[in-house]
């Protein structure tokens, strides 16, 4: 059975005239203006290019990249600290790190997003809560970054721990025996080796952050999925809108995979199976 659908890519390609104001600007990225607020005034022009849809897409893609990359910085640094903490001798430190991992990986990301956005500001001291709600610019973006970063940190922590625990105890002994402190053993031996071991799962997780950043639309972050959905609602060109989103997500993750492959090849440890040894 043939599907009845009129593909119309021109919707996404047209632009507004230069002097046509698009109403109040709420969310901007890279100088382009995307807005939901201006819709009412401009919708009756009747043209397909009632809104700068392409700019919306570009803006959405920009926010997806910014949110994901910022979250990844939190993920890799916090995840490393938590992962290392799970391998040290102090039972108290291990217990705290284990608790972190179990909390953040066991609650659905969507629920965590809502908790960070709606609940946490209420739990803060009054002044801090008011600052987050009233004065912090772009609160939903900061919230999304922190939430994504801390959620993925629990997964990265487990990868870092697995990497460290896969290194024979003799390596630690060899480092300590030459007079290195435990911190130095982690810094110069255990972490450099374990990061190299866990590059493949780290790559998957980095791509996961890009994909999971779409959940941020539920608290109002106008990232790629949110913009696509908005275009679909304005134009009813649902297929085009989400096809563009799909292709862009795949392009971004392909770039991540490619970059990580290069990194992996560059830092590979001679003598491992990956080098064709074994």
């Amino acid at each position: 059975m043939e599907m009845k659908y009129n593909w119309d890519w021109s919707v996404l390609l047209c632009r507004l005239p230069e002097d046509d104001p698009t109403g109040t600007s709420e969310t901007t990225f890279g100088g382009t203006t995307a807005t939901a607020g201006g819709a009412a005034q401009t919708f009756d022009t009747g043209a397909d290019c009632a809104q700068p849809y392409l700019d919306w897409i570009v803006s959405g893609l920009g926010w997806t990249v910014v949110v994901a990359c910022c979250a990844w910085v939190i993920t890799i640094s916090l995840g490393s600290v938590i992962g290392v903490s799970r391998t040290v001798n102090q039972p108290m430190v291990r217990a705290i790190a284990t608790t972190y991992v179990e909390i953040f990986r066991n609650i659905p990301l969507l629920v965590q997003m809502f908790i960070w956005f709606f609940v946490v500001p209420e739990l803060l001291p009054e002044d801090a809560g008011r600052w987050v709600k009233r004065e912090l610019p772009l609160p939903e973006y900061w919230t999304a970054i922190v939430c994504l970063g801390m959620y993925h940190a629990s997964r990265t922590a487990e990868q870092v721990r697995a990497g460290i625990e896969s290194i024979p105890l003799g390596q630690t002994h060899a480092g300590l025996a030459t007079g290195l402190t435990r911190v130095q053993v982690y810094r110069y031996i255990l972490l450099p080796v374990s990061y190299r071991i866990i590059i493949p799962p780290l790559t998957s997780d980095f791509m996961g952050i890009f994909k999971n950043s779409s959940v941020a639309l539920t608290i109002g972050v106008m990232e790629l999925t949110a913009q696509s959905r908005q275009i679909a609602e304005y134009t009813f060109n649902i297929f085009e809108a989400f096809t563009v989103a799909t292709v862009l997500y795949m392009m971004v993750t392909l770039i991540v995979v490619t970059v990580m492959r290069v990194v992996e090849a560059k830092v590979r440890i001679p003598g491992t199976i990956a080098m064709g040894g074994g």
Partner: peptide, 8 residues
């Protein structure tokens, strides 16, 4: 016994 040189 196992040398324990740092592989990286």
């Amino acid at each position: 016994q196992n040398f324990e040189l740092f592989p990286h």
